[in-house]
Design a protein around this nucleic acid. Structure first.
Lengths: 160, 160
DNA sequence: TATTGTTATACTCTATAACTATA
DNA sequence: TATAGTTATAGAGTATAACAATA
């Protein structure tokens, strides 16, 4: 039912991996276009969301949780600080580390971003049933748990 | 059942879009790592597969079908020609256009790539049931059809 | 000596626009 | 004038290694 004989389609389109990679391209631009109204990109929101979920994370913790390199996090935090969404403070117990505080403006940004992203995602997924969408959601979670270490970690051990 | 209360996870992990984007990262490196044995990247194989599916395509046709810019296709074709996998010839009916021929070596490369990629993908998806994998496959196809024009085209009108 | 955050560097991708040759 | 392929260029993103401050 998926492939009708009248439609010729390059064979890589028959591979789930190819489809998912192309789909992710669309989802990425959708997210960034959605957040453009707020003047930020997805990565900024992801950093803030991570900071709000755990307590007193160092930059290394955030890097590891998000799977981004510590040196790119520097730039993202610079931008978040410049816009007043977060603040870097020294960790008094280990003055090499920073403890990053999310400001009230940062919390408001996350709240509004969540609303906009959920809305955009709902619109994007209207082509598939709620049940199938749930299967996709769960399958993606299982595959990430199987192949990306750190996806379903208990805690980053941030207390230091 | 998906989220156990003992596991804290940043909220963007609850969005299907975020999961699919991260999943696509893994699939992309899996594909390129799999093909590294053959000395090519996914994009080279995609171009060859497209050329084999339709007949006498111009570079513009291939660009549009794959959703890549014509100027990057130039580089990919340069590499494919240098390795003997394809050849550019002038279209006698319109000498501005090229007709790209896939060589026997190119066909062999596609065959071997398909084998390796299918194998790698099967291994990657072992964490989910065959039924759920099919749901993911079909849902991805539906979403691409809904949001990416040109995904399920009838034909590129290549005759010229 | 090892680690945290930072900076510097190079490499890859991408996107835009110019250029040529043909039409 | 418009189109197909090519080239040039600049911008974003990424990955690696060096560096200063602190442990």
């Amino acid at each position: 039912m998926t492939d009708r004989p009248t439609t010729r389609r390059p064979p890589m389109g028959a591979r789930t991996g190819y489809r998912l990679v192309k789909l992710a391209d669309l989802l990425l631009v959708l997210a960034d276009r959605t957040l453009a109204t707020l003047g930020v990109k997805s990565k900024h929101v992801h950093v803030l969301e991570t900071l709000l979920t755990y307590d007193s994370l160092s930059q290394q913790d955030v890097s590891r949780l998000l799977g981004i390199d510590p040196n790119v996090l520097v730039g993202v935090l610079d931008e978040l600080e410049a816009r007043g969404f977060a603040e870097r403070r020294r960790n008094p117990r280990d003055r090499r580390r920073h403890v990053i505080q999310v400001t009230d403006a940062g919390r408001a940004l996350v709240a509004e971003s969540t609303r906009l992203l959920d809305e955009a995602e709902d619109a994007f997924f209207t082509a598939v049933s709620a049940a199938d969408r749930q299967v996709v959601h769960d399958a993606a979670g299982l595959l990430l748990a199987a192949h990306r270490p750190g996806w379903s970690e208990e805690s980053p051990g941030a207390g230091c």
